[in-house]
Design a protein around this nucleic acid. Structure first.
Lengths: 247, 247
DNA sequence: AAATTAAAATGTAAAATTAACCTTAAATTA
DNA sequence: TAATTTAAGGTTAATTTTACATTTTAATTT
């Protein structure tokens, strides 16, 4: 290659979509930017990648610096590279998502961040850069991931009820599921361990608590991990539905 | 952001995994590099992205420049960004795959390319850069894509027999499929148009020719597009057939 | 303490899908 | 015309999915 130096003028960034499940809703972590560009705008946590830093590690570093979150496994989703997506120059960005338990961690506004918030995904308005598009793509990835692998547990506390798990699936898939069929299917996978303990202090019959049993994560033999999203009862999730990116 | 200029020192590239189906095998297009780095090595077609060029368009441009291929839809797969994956500096690369019909197009060695070859995927040896890893990830993407969407047709000539289609699925999935069940399932999807024509000049009963009917590409209602890869026959033990692939 | 409230837990039957399996048909070649 | 080769196609059993309603258990209210 004759002269290659003119190519080495780009920057690279990572953007993180951090999903949490709280009050029956899927939320994401957004930050209000404390510096230009897009100062004062809400945005996904993201920043530039250092020259001597692996891309995948960069996502963890950036998330930590901006929100204090640590030890969060991150999944690469997609890379966005239109020419003028960033006002300061040519910046290509890679999107990552992560699933966290908002209850057990404390995200805080850190460097260059004015504010931080957990926002239900159906309440997200205009974000900085092309972050709305990035969010859509991560959401769509999450929806297909949850059908194929037992990842939902990462969004729940260590011990949880089957109803909570079902609500989580309903929130992500945007459908309502049949209770008996859901329980049958999940239990038949033998990935849940019955802790022999029940809820306390609830004003109704207390539910059994389960724990995800990582041992038994053999892939389910036939279909997707949880593919029967067909028994949807067309009830309430209208806004949710329409935001599903088909096509 | 105080001083950001030190970040704008990276380069960006795209690498293409071009799949073809030929002689019953899945092959990829590889090039022998005509310039450093890795001059003389076999590699995936790939090159640096221009500063003023959209990432996704870059993949098409690069493929065209190196192989002459044009109008090939490309799917983004994944981005690779370890620090020293490229000897000339910090270069992050995005992998794309495409499905082509080797019969109807003429790839040729173009700029900076010494040679070009279609190589069966199981005969690929050491490639330049981290291209072996990139290939693996595209292959794995192809395998899951073919189960979810009717993309196999992009690898076949316009008119094809059901046996050819089945062989294609078998080659990609690495399993053997039951002939009657395969035909039943594919035909029930109503995405194939019977051309009322048969093969000619074959030394056996000629097969009917079909054509992919893009009209009818409603997503199959329940399961994956072609998910029943479980009826794999372990070839020899025809009656001893407890051979379902568990675990 | 009895009644009310709220969610938990549970089984069965019909429908749909998947899996297993083999014989006859149509062309070419020897 | 016999031999070879691949195409074509249908039935049954097994499994999976779907639809559906009542009873149980605790806390709270009266």
């Amino acid at each position: 290659m004759s002269d290659v130096s003119s190519f080495f003028k780009m920057a690279f960034s990572v953007d993180c979509v951090i999903f949490g499940f709280d009050e029956g809703k899927i939320k994401i972590l957004i930050i209000k930017r404390g510096e230009d560009p897009f100062k004062g705008f809400w945005a996904l946590p993201g920043n530039l990648v250092y020259l001597d830093e692996d891309l995948n590690l960069s996502a963890k570093r950036v998330l930590h610096e901006l929100t204090g979150l640590q030890n969060v496994p991150m999944q690469q989703v997609s890379t966005f590279g239109t020419v003028s997506r960033h006002p300061l120059g040519r910046v290509i960005t890679t999107a990552y998502y992560a699933l966290v338990k908002p209850s057990t961690l404390h995200a805080y506004a850190s460097s260059h961040v004015e504010q931080i918030a957990w926002l239900p995904i159906d309440e997200v308005e205009e974000l900085a850069f092309d972050h709305n598009i990035i969010l859509e793509s991560c959401l769509s990835k999450l929806r297909s991931a949850i059908k194929n692998r037992p990842i939902g547990f990462d969004l729940l506390p260590k011990h949880f009820t089957l109803s909570a798990l079902q609500k989580l699936y309903e929130a992500i898939l945007g459908t309502s599921l049949d209770k008996r069929n859901f329980r049958k299917k999940i239990l038949s996978m033998e990935i849940l361990e019955d802790k022999g303990v029940t809820q306390e202090g609830v004003a109704h019959r207390p539910a059994k608590l389960f724990q995800f049993d990582a041992e038994n994560t053999k892939p389910s033999p036939k279909t997707d991990f949880y593919s029967n999203f067909n028994n949807a009862k067309k009830i309430s999730f209208d806004h949710f539905r329409k935001s599903r990116s088909f096509s």
